[in-house]
């Protein structure tokens, strides 16, 4: 084992990790926001909005993310309108193109995950809220969204983990994240095995941390399924205080 080499590889890959985390967190954040818009359209009564959302979900779930990314990175520049508009300085940046295509793609999946959460909200609990004088945003915020979130979280956790791995594709549009840096190192040293194993270990570590955080959140949100005696002190309680 060439520990010195592994060490220098890890150091180079760790230096690229903030880029991976940036790609991931920005695209999950903006993709999540966009998913909220899409799911609102998808469940609305307006037939145009509903069909637009259906089409959006079909296109972004149905085509390869890599092609979507190439279309955004190489394709958009072909349009003079875009090249001469104020968005061009941003769209010239590979990082921004990667975040944009990752966000557009995850929005399609997340919208469907959120919709399954909405469908799982018991109609009777919504009726009880209406009967108590709730409507509109208050009803959404206090009753529908919290229940839907609890149902959607397990599937959404999976989507988030997939997003961490999808950031690797950004290397193909010249973003120097973990996979891109790994390939550059391989082209310099031809030591494929060690370098990719280091990269894989980093992705595993990232996902391990993310999954732990998500399962803590899920555990906390699902307290109503456990008997009171099963409630244990948790990190979340320590951080945010026990609720009544």
């Amino acid at each position: 084992m060439d520990f010195a080499f592994l060490y220098s590889t890890m150091k180079a890959l760790l230096a690229a990790t903030p880029t991976t985390i940036g790609l991931f967190s920005l695209s999950v954040f903006f993709g999540g926001l966009l998913a909220l818009v899409i799911v609102t359209m998808r469940v609305s009564n307006n037939i145009i909005a509903r069909n637009f959302a259906k089409g959006y979900i079909f296109v972004f779930r149905g085509s390869p993310l890599l092609i979507q990314m190439f279309l955004v990175f190489y394709g958009l520049g072909q349009f003079g309108v875009i090249r001469h508009s104020f968005v061009w300085p941003a769209l010239r940046e590979p990082f921004i193109c990667a975040v944009l295509s990752l966000a557009l793609c995850t929005a399609g999946y997340s919208a469907e995950i959120f919709r399954s959460g909405l469908r799982a909200v018991p109609p009777g609990e919504v009726e009880a809220a209406r009967a108590a004088g709730m409507s509109g945003f208050l009803l959404l915020r206090r009753i529908i969204a919290p229940i839907a979130l609890r149902h959607a979280l397990p599937a959404y956790s999976t989507e988030i983990v997939l997003m961490v791995k999808s950031t690797a594709l950004a290397s193909l549009v010249t973003v120097w994240e973990i996979t891109g840096v790994a390939q550059r190192l391989i082209s310099q040293t031809y030591r494929t095995m060690e370098i990719f194993l280091c990269a894989a270990a980093l992705y595993l570590l990232l996902n391990f941390i993310i999954l732990q955080a998500l399962s803590l959140l899920e555990n906390r949100l699902n307290r109503h399924h456990r008997r009171p005696t099963e409630r244990k002190p948790s990190v979340m309680n320590a951080l945010f205080g026990a609720r009544p």
């Binding site: 018991p122 009777g124 009880a128 709730m134 208050l138 206090r142 919290p146 229940i147 109503h224």
Partner: peptide
Amino acid sequence: RTELGMVFQSFNLWSHMTILENIIEGPVHV
């Protein structure tokens, strides 16, 4: 509707809230 209470056959308590939270929900937020 706040003047007309309603009690349902299937209770329809909000499952994600404790009993106390269920009871103060309307008074506090509505």
